[in-house]
Nucleic acid binder design. Sequence first.
DNA 1: ATCCCGAGGG
DNA 2: CCCTCTGGAT
Length: 227
Amino acid sequence: MKRCLDEAYPNAECELDFSTPLELLVAVILSAQCTDKRVNQTTPALFAKYRTAADYAGADRTELEEYIRPTGFYRNKATSLMGLGAALVERHDGEVPNTLDQLVKLPGVGRKTANVVLGEAFGLPGITVDTHFGRLVRRWGWTAEEDPVKVEHAVGELFPRKDWTMLSQRVIWHGRRICHARKPACGACPLARDCPAFGAGPTEFDEAAALVKGDEREHLLALVSNR
DNA sequence: ATCCCGAGGG
DNA sequence: CCCTCTGGAT
């Protein structure tokens, strides 16, 4: 029913299927500092045991921690999941809400997680700004903003479109796999020829990006979209 | 040894 | 703004 990462990048570790918004939300929470592969190995047993918000709310903490241990940060995540379950039961009749305001108020749910749920569970056309997304659009000269919210607004204004949900995932994937923070793999990058930062030395990479010309933006966006 | 698609807390 | 929380991959 729901999918987390873009199928346009075929990669077994990226294929995540969920039957409910709650499953998607839980998987995103578990994903922090963890590979998708590990999350995929963890969720089947977890979802078989914990099916509803009430199940998480009433979980035996030690047992829940056992289920999610391999994903790391397991104590924090167990706390989040139990609090999340309780909050959903109390405030939303056990359902996952579909507005940013309500999502962000849930335990363990920040803006990034909320945006993923809005886009992928509810089909709302939002931009998901994470560290990768922010870094890349800055390198591409689309904005100089550092604050994720300002990045979101700036990019949304520059390129208003209905399908930012999936496109965000492509940008993020590209940031994870190729356009790294420290040592970007420009040799493997299909955008290198058109990248305003390509060719600059490591320390000048991001500074070069700031000099991008306006008409290069659309070109880069097209390249990302068509992959 | 170092880094990672985040969130909460001091 | 800084720190911490964890396991796993490279």
